[in-house]
Design a protein around this nucleic acid. Structure first.
Lengths: 194, 194, 194, 194
DNA sequence: GATGAATGAGGCTTCATTCAT
DNA sequence: CATGAATGAAGCCTCATTCAT
């Protein structure tokens, strides 16, 4: 068998959570798409929330890797920030990443078990950490203005969250919206602008 | 009776949609909190989605009014933009506004009827329009840099969306986060920074 | 309507719990026998355990009334004890009393919620109390031997439990088994036998 | 390996049937406690009911042996009866005997296959037979009153059933309850009391 | 307008049992 | 003998919605 049934299940779940959101994604839909029995889900993942957690973490891990790669190859801090944002936005519109899982489902609302939520929160922290490092690097090599790394990182990530939601959830995003957003970020951190 | 049963119902619904999200908010919970019969819900509002629509529009109308007031009293365009963002963020953390209705429930996921969704989208457009006007004013009175009003408005709103989600849904927001975000916006539109 | 649907539901549940035991009695079976929708069960009784509690208490209340009547009309304590045991055994083989609910289902095993179990335990205590009072009466009017009323009551009830189970659950009970059991009890409490 | 996997399975099953009852005891729980694979269950025992039968018979065989030993060493019939009851009650509160298997699970409700049930019933008959023999012995050596051996045996066993249930399932049993019950039995069979 | 009993489809989950390895 | 992934029927319960009063 090319992929195990467990993998097929996880992929089907990622697809459906991203397409339909948490509540509209039913065990039946997942089982049908993965072509396995319904009971296999609780067998492998325990329950719906744990399955969602597995999906979310899977996406976040790939995301984290992409962001790390993008920043580590940058020649300076400012470029690292740019690369981070670019990688973020690219990832968010690449259908193969199942990014929508994290947009259509809310780790903060759909996960009722606080232990599971904490795992997710921890993973998100790592995403922030990559950007914080990039900003610190920029401060050291003087490629960006003097800003507070943590505050700035969270604002930039928030901007990414916002523009991404605007693009994938609403009809308001104009052409070249992502490019503009990248400009906006760089403008805000470039020395001489503060 | 001070408030009509219909009003009590709408208020209970706004509270619960904001607290629990769309799916976890049931007719029974709403009826109990409003202390009315379940059947009164469909009687007055038709169905759950229409009730949610009524809640969302109610919040959005108050939101729109607040934003309009905030921009109209500004002495110049740049201040209008600042006031807009300030009013946005203030509104979002004022419990009496039931803002969470729009955060915990997604007009894009929870509303299955496209007609209802269109009404909501139209209302959101008006929110954007207020900021676009403020930016145009800033371009005319030269209080801001030369930017594309629509692009910039959507990016700023996206930033508001992002920082708001960070603040009300996650544990990542540091102290003075909203103030920093306001600075970030002003920095990005002030002439000489572009 | 002669009987309300809620009453029909309770009766069907009593019948089925007695016939099939707790686990083999399903919502579907009950709903079908009562000819109502499945959802009406949780609407009226909350959940399966609460429904079972309602059944058990209903049977126990009738039981308690029968035992009280039987003892109160006795001319002396010894007869009161006899009447109690007779009423107990008669009740246990009268199909219209739904006694089997308490034999086929175990209030001690099938009720997972301790609050519910406590309610049941309390009700059983009242059953014991009736016999304790009869024994005390016998001690006062000297119609029985000097025995400890509580100890003796619990042993007699235990005997009732045992002979009842033997009769309704096993194939071992010979003819006139209940009469023999009554003799056995009276023999053990009659003065001059101790 | 000290114990075979089959033995480990049987022991785990006896423990769990006694702790949780028939329905709450799942193959998964048993397999986990015995630390063997689930599939080994059906492999060795066929199905759940057969496994339960094996557990019940195992307990009953030990029980039968204990009762036989207790009566055979008695100097007279009355003592044999006493020893029987004492052994019964001692067995019922010795955790190592897994007696609870026969209390928490009902051979009459939980075994749907009548063939299996018949095997169990037959085994229970042997339990009765031991007491019937003791009573007959008492009639022969005049250590007890003139009673019908079968009737009396079944009543005494019923009493054992009842007091045992009172002790292990309910909170009603007072101190020295078992001693009192033994007295009660002896009082009822001692000559001069009838 | 107002009530809440009644409906029934559908969701998540459990679990004995099978079977390929 | 041993494993545990896989199955699928069935259970309990939820809940928006209807309707007679």
């Amino acid at each position: 068998m090319a992929v195990s049934k467990k993998e097929a299940l996880l992929q089907a779940a990622k697809d459906l959570f991203g397409e339909c959101g948490y509540n509209e994604t039913t065990f039946k839909k997942i089982a049908e798409r993965a072509d396995v029995a319904m009971g296999l889900m609780t067998h492998h993942f325990g329950n719906k929330e744990k399955l969602f957690l597995a999906c979310g973490l899977d996406v976040l891990e790939n995301f984290h890797r992409k962001l790390s790669e993008a920043t580590s190859c940058a020649p300076d801090g400012r470029t690292a920030i740019y690369n981070y944002c670019k990688a973020y936005l690219d990832f968010s519109i690449d259908p193969s990443t199942n990014w929508l899982v994290l947009v259509r489902c809310s780790p903060y609302s759909d996960m009722k078990t606080s232990a599971d939520r904490d795992i997710m929160i921890e993973k998100f922290m790592q995403i922030h950490a990559v950007l914080i490092d990039a900003i610190k690097r920029g401060l050291e090599d003087n490629s960006i203005a003097k800003v507070d790394p943590v505050q700035t990182a969270i604002i930039i990530v928030s901007l990414m969250v916002g523009v991404n939601r605007t693009r994938v959830l609403t009809p308001y995003a104009p052409e070249h919206f992502y490019e503009e957003a990248l400009d906006f970020v760089i403008r805000a951190v470039t020395p001489g602008n503060a």
